[in-house]
Amino acid sequence: MSPQFLFTIEVIANGLMAGVMYSLVALGFVLIFKASGIFNYAQGVMALFAAMTLVGIQNGQVPFSHLINAVFGTNIHHFGWNLPAIVAILITLVVMVLFAILVERLILKHLVNQEPIILFMATIGLAYFMEGFGDLMWGSEIKILDVGIPSGGSLWLEEKTIGWAAEGSNYYGMYIDKLDMIATVVAILLVISLTLFSQYTKTGRALRAVADDHQAALSVGISLRKIWVIVWTIAGFVALVAGVMWGAKSGVQFSLSLIALKALPVLILGGFTSIPGAIIGGLIIGVGEKLFEFTIGPLIGGATENWFAYVLALVFLVFRPQGLFGDKIIERV
């Protein structure tokens, strides 16, 4: 095979992997929008907060230590432990459950029956509050996330594929990051779990009922408040997964909250209410932007990925405003 053809395959494979990473972020948006009609602007910050909490707990960092030291004149920073990753993840999940309960009690409960734009604005406020709260709680320095996920190109794959090109050609084997491979497996497991949960559990069916029709769900005794707590908890869990995968690349820092920007074209393309849509949308965006950068990018100066993802999404929007898998909204006058 020609190296150029193999490079194209490599770009597509890496585009698919990048798409999975985008989908991980988009899933959190879909879950909340599907169950409550809220576009959660704070989803990116939730990923950041969850990852900060995970690293803080794992490293035994004292939360609010700067504040405590400033007020009481102490000099405490660490509890002196280093927890195994799995324990830290479980404790972080508990924190995200508490977070979901607080969001419901302090924000959503008071905004029942409000316009979607009001709820959207409430999540903007939540995002900015959490940015500051996260910094206050865990500090703003870059945190190194180590939960044992390997990174770097797979040597095994490179060795297996190096012979695919003719000998003497400028080809060094197929490159795929091990972190991306793991993210793909995690995303697959996540989607299967979410699907099984929503199809085969009583709570899952209640979630679907609320998603279909709030009023009807309330009339058969489903507690909307309880469902909101569950949905925000699951979204918090998805945010943790996304935060871990992205944070493993760059360290846990403020910029992690900006990964939400990568999820928006995925949502436009896949639809705001479809879990498979988030996955397929992510894959299309990932492959589309990488292929465009590979083929057209060099001709127009490169750095095309950010804007091309939105252009691609807008093209889809023209033909399918509800996205590929979104629910078609028909309002009769």
Binding site: Y172, W246, S250, L258, E293
Partner: peptide, 21 residues
């Protein structure tokens, strides 16, 4: 060779695949 990265630079897979090539 000029290889630009858009702000904020959280995703640079294309750029480093190009460097690898």
């Amino acid at each position: 060779t000029l290889i630009p990265v858009d702000h904020p630079g959280q995703e640079q897979k294309s750029q480093w695949l190009q460097i690898r090539r």
